[in-house]
Design a protein around this nucleic acid. Structure first.
Lengths: 148, 148
DNA sequence: CCATATTGCTTGCATATGGAAATATATCGG
DNA sequence: CCGATATATTTCCATATGCAAGCAATATGG
């Protein structure tokens, strides 16, 4: 009915909805954080000096700057991130991963890896998973600071 | 750093965010509807007698029943869908695609196919797109009424 | 046949989010 | 150096969404 390109796009939307549902529950229950909060911490973890401006975080998370402001506030209260100014540019307010945040994201990553493996447990071979990862990587390529 | 399963999941989340951004703009501008509304109409289009209960729509769209109620209301005002009761079960309130709705979804599908093709324009061969669609299909399999 | 449980739908409430506006700072062109 | 422009962040407002509660209708078990 639809051509392969449309099919791929439509299925991607569906697969995403299913995965978000699945991961939100598990990660939230285990670590007390929503999937999106864990992703924020993961981006910080892989950034130089484990810090990013709110604007850069917004780009990496595909959300608006205001959303980053509001996501960072509770994480700051929980001491998972800190706030630091740039000595050269007083406009910038970096979100910095704390030691506690690093610990949490390390654990959350392990949980995520277990859950991800579970997604592919049945009916998937290793090369197929690798192929999927490679092809999806092409869709996100060109952006700075991709996860995975 | 991460294993292939995690990599695939993380990239899927990222790719989805990028695609939603891209498609929301285009579809919205051309047809006045959000991507999610178009998906609702597409599910109706492919359903028997072009109608679905709100519960079934919710499952297909991966949203809550209340969201379906609220999504259907404006579409009904626009005469894109109608509301019909089931003669056997008075609890059911079907969302039925109207003639105008069918026209719109036909046009929107064409737009979507053009935009989808554009996503893969560079650096993708036909077999690669087909492989991606097939692998993603496996992630959504088992659900009734998948699109694409 | 009736009481109870289940199902489909809607509404109230709390939360999440994007966009516009406001503010502060930095950069650029003369 | 100065005014105009651009950038980073926050706040206000409108919208979207899930969940729990409520209601109506159906199914179930005695």
């Amino acid at each position: 009915m639809t051509n392969p390109s449309s099919s791929a796009v439509l299925r991607l939307l569906g697969a995403n909805a299913r995965l978000e549902e699945r991961f939100s529950g598990g990660l939230g229950a285990l670590h007390g954080l929503a999937l999106k909060e864990v992703l924020l911490l993961m981006h910080l973890e892989q950034a130089p000096r484990q810090r990013l401006s709110r604007i850069d975080l917004a780009k990496r998370l595909y959300v608006s700057p205001s959303t980053v402001t509001r996501m960072a506030a509770p994480l700051e209260k929980l001491k998972m991130v800190g706030r630091e100014a740039d000595p050269r540019d007083a406009r910038l307010a970096y979100v910095v991963l704390t030691k506690a945040g690093l610990e949490l994201v390390t654990n959350a990553r392990a949980t995520l890896e277990v859950m991800a493996a579970d997604v592919f447990r049945d009916r998937w071979t290793k090369p197929e998973i690798a192929t999927l990862a490679e092809l999806l990587g092409r869709l996100t390529a060109g952006q700075p600071g991709e996860l995975g």
